[in-house]
Every structure is written in C-alpha cells, then in structure tokens.
Design a protein around this nucleic acid. Structure first.
Lengths: 149, 149
DNA sequence: TAATTGAGGACTATTCTAGTCCTATTTAAT
DNA sequence: ATTAAATAGGACTAGAATAGTCCTCAATTA
C-alpha cells in the first residue's frame, strides 16, 4: 500500500497542532493531552523531530518544544524523513550495496527518477499547506512520463 | 523510508524481463532461473499479477505467463497496487473508519491531495519507461504546492 | 494417461513497528 | 541548595506485517 508509518501520521497531527500557534512552547505532556496520543509515544516522536531539526527543544521546568522554522518552511518531506529515514521507494535507491540482481537492475536509473518525482512532490507541500482549509482543485494532472520524452 | 515491499521490487524486475519480449509466454520456472529469484516466490508474485490483470496465464504443459497489455499500457501504479493493494500514504485515505483523531484530522483532505499527486506520478510511468535507457532530464520541478494557491 | 504447468491457500519464520519504560541531564522556582 | 519539571537517550517487549515455502488441486498437452 505504499504506506507511511503510524508514527509519521501522528507526527503530522502533532505538528499541525503546533503550527497553529507557531511560537508557543509546548511540553510533551500537553501535546499528549491535546492530541490523545500516549505520552511515551509523543515523546519518541518529538525527539525524532528535534534530531531532524524540525523542532527545537528546551529542557528543564517550563521547557518544551517549538517549531524550528515557519510552517511554510517545513516540508512534508522533512517530516517523513525525520520519522522514516531517507525517502526512497527501493532499497537500491539509497545504497546499491548487496544488490545481486545483476540482470534487470538497469531499472535502477529509472526508479531513481520516480523517486525524485515523489520527493519533489513531498518537498513542495509544507506544514502551512496541511493546516490550510481544503481546496479542491479543478483538474490536476502531473504527467511524469513527460520526463522520458 | 516510504518504501516499496521487496516483492514489488521483484515484480518490476520480472516484468521488465518479460517486457523485452512482450509476446513470449514464459513459465515460472524459466523466470526464476533468469532473474535468480526463488521459484516459490516468483510463483507468488506471478499469481498476484494475474489477479490484477497485469499478466495472463495459461495452464498445463507449455503454459506460462504473458503480459496482458503492451508495456506502454502497464503503469507502475498498476504493478504496485497489484502487490500491495491500493496506493495511499495513510490508512485514512482508504477508509476513514476507526479514526478517532477528532482534533487534527481536518488534515485528511490535504493528505488526499498529496496521495493523488503521488498516484498520478506513478500512474504516468509505464513498464515501457522502465526498460528504456536512462535519460536524465535537464530540470524537473513539479510543484504540488501550486494546488493550494 | 502421464507429465507439465498454474491456482489457491495454509503455514512458518523473520523482520519491522509501535509502544513502553528506565536512567541521566538540564533548568526553573523556592 | 534543593526539589520539581522537563527533555535526552537508549533498551526492551509485544504484536503485526512481510517474505518465503510448501502442499494439494485443476487444466492442458503429448
């Protein structure tokens, strides 16, 4: 199903909450209460987001987490890779080591184009877009196949 | 990592092999030998591809598998969904049942736009593209964020 | 009728994910 | 100073998903 992990899903919920009052410092406990996600899980996610420079943390009493940048500057791609590592559909796209698929792996080059396309797509959507009210576009067609012509 | 399953990866290898001699009927055994993927695994994949109408099978001696359509008409999206079910990043995008994320799930609408975008991307790349020699495009930018403006 | 090949599904083992918990560190308030 | 409130980091467990195998049945050809 080409799925995103549950944690990533939670992360977007958490970040959308935080993006609404962007400059506000929030403790993990508070976020847990508001979102309904269990505290240990929230903590885990927040730590990952700090390591990926999506959030900034301050320790100690009155400490907590804030967005590291404006919502417009935090891409969905950044969030996904914070939680799941590099965005790539195939193992090969990250490291080609240990791939013994001698025959057939000339596919690699083309896969990486697809990966690139998806990465661009995710890179161009930001947190700001996510919390924006939904707009249904008239007609959207993005022909990737045009890349090959 | 937003990854594709290993089986899907194998499927593309198998299909690229088959696309090179598109009208040729191939037995599972032969495909296993050529690709180096174990026979039971190859069989499993082939069956899934038949169920998804990507391949056509004939039983009995001299039986085997052929592409159901021209390589140009078999999209990567079709292959992925054959192996992994519907293409969607989040569970919610498929069924909204059992989602108690009351606060924060207005995100849904926007996620589905992202899903749509990725789906379009995968839909527009075909088997024919995959076996084509790699062409590196000059500059490729597909701003999904434009959907929101 | 025997040999060849796919269909369908059950089953197992391994890997990955989700989720929890513990201990150390930092900061603020008293 | 001391205590309380937070995060950091990492170990650990249980459960779910994936990969992979195998067995029996059905169809086709020679």
């Amino acid at each position: 199903m080409l799925r995103l992990s549950k944690l990533t899903d939670y992360a977007t919920v958490i970040l959308s909450f935080m993006a609404r009052e962007k400059a506000q410092v929030r403790a993990a406990m508070e976020i847990s209460t508001v979102t309904g996600i269990a505290l240990p899980t929230v903590s885990k996610i927040l730590k990952l987001l700090v390591n990926a420079d999506v959030l900034i943390s301050t320790r100690g009493a009155k400490g907590g987490y804030v967005l590291a940048r404006m919502p417009e500057e935090i891409s969905v791609a950044a969030v996904i890779s914070a939680l799941e590592g590099p965005i790539a559909l195939t193992e090969c796209s990250i490291s080609h080591q240990g791939c013994e698929q001698a025959s057939g792996c000339d596919i690699l080059g083309n896969w990486s184009l697809i990966n690139q396309t998806i990465h661009n797509a995710l890179e161009s959507v930001t947190l700001a877009d996510l919390i924006r009210p939904v707009v249904v576009p008239e007609e959207v067609l993005i022909p990737v196949s045009s890349l090959y012509r």
